[in-house]
Every structure is written in structure tokens, then in C-alpha cells.
Amino acid sequence: MKSNVEHLYVISYDIADPKRWRRIFKLMNGYGEWLQLSVFQCRLSARRHAELMSLLDGIILNGHDHVVMLDLGPADSVTPRVISLGKRFDPVQREPTIV
């Protein structure tokens, strides 16, 4: 994946310990939009994706926790086919990143 091309991801996690769950939730708020309890959608460049993977790997406890990242493809050209009951689903849009 090119570093300047953002991909749209749906990230879900099942974390065994409430303290680690809160750390993951806070981390994910900085990378994407919260959809449900342990589900986020994120628009990530290759660099931000690698950074997030590294940070998540440093928090989770292998063998106890589980993180799933679904790559839906290039964010500007993918049209997710989502069935949403209740609340409306809107793919996260590009926003400026302040560093």
C-alpha cells in the first residue's frame, strides 16, 4: 500500500482485562471513529496503520486478547456495502491531521 493512500479499516477488539480495554479504547479514539462498544472505523495511511499496529501490539496480551482489522480498501474509492439497523452508518471522511 502506498504511504499517501489511505485505506478504510473496520477494527474490532475483544480485550480480557478492563484496564487494557480502556487503554485500547482511548488509543483507538485517536485513530478513528467509534461505531460500537469495541468497534471503530479508521482511515489510515500505511504509516499510521503501522504505528497503530505497533501500539496495539504493545498493549494487548497475546493469547488472551484479540484485535481484528478489516481492510476495506482505498478510502477514496471504496463504497462499503453496510447494512445498519438503528443508527445510520457513514464512512469516516478525510480530516486534517494535526501533529
Score class of each variant (00 low, 15 high):
W21N: 14
W34K: 08
E95G: 11
G86I: 11
I11D: 00
L27H: 10
D65P: 09
S54V: 02
S12M: 14
L35M: 14
T79C: 07
H66F: 14
K26Y: 11
Q41W: 12
Y9Q: 01
R48M: 07
S3F: 01
T97I: 13
T79D: 11
A16T: 03
N4P: 00
R47Y: 04
L52M: 06
Y31K: 09
W34Q: 12
V68G: 02
K87M: 08
R48C: 01
K26H: 08
V67K: 06
Y9S: 02
G63F: 11
P96F: 00
Y9A: 00
I83M: 10
Q36D: 10
S45C: 03
R43P: 05
D57H: 15
R88H: 12
A46C: 05
S38G: 07
H66T: 10
Y9C: 02
K2M: 02
V10K: 00
V5P: 00
P80I: 01
R94C: 01
R20Y: 08
N29G: 12
Y31Q: 09
P80H: 09
E6Y: 01
F25C: 06
E33C: 05
I11F: 02
Q41Y: 03
V99K: 07
L85C: 08
W21E: 14
Q41V: 06
R88I: 09
Y31H: 14
E33G: 04
N4W: 03
G73D: 02
P80S: 02
G32K: 06
C42I: 02
L37Y: 15
I60Y: 14
I59C: 11
L56V: 14
N62M: 12
R94T: 04
P80G: 05
H49Q: 13
Y9P: 00
V82P: 08
Q93D: 09
K26A: 04
E51F: 04
Y13N: 11
R43H: 02
D90P: 01
H49V: 01
H64V: 06
P80Y: 04
S3R: 08
V99I: 11
R43K: 07
F40L: 09
N29A: 04
P96G: 01
A16Y: 06
L52A: 00
P91S: 05
T79F: 09
I59H: 05
V68E: 10
W21Q: 12
R43T: 00
R88C: 08
F89I: 07
L85P: 05
G58Q: 12
V78N: 08
L72Y: 07
A50M: 06
I59Q: 07
V82L: 13
R48Q: 11
W21Y: 15
M1A: 03
G30I: 04
N4Q: 11
F25A: 12
I15M: 12
P91W: 05
L52P: 01
P91Q: 09
D65W: 15
G86E: 15
L37G: 08
E51A: 09
E6P: 00
I98D: 05
M28W: 02
G58M: 09
L61A: 15
M1Q: 02
D65G: 08
L70T: 05
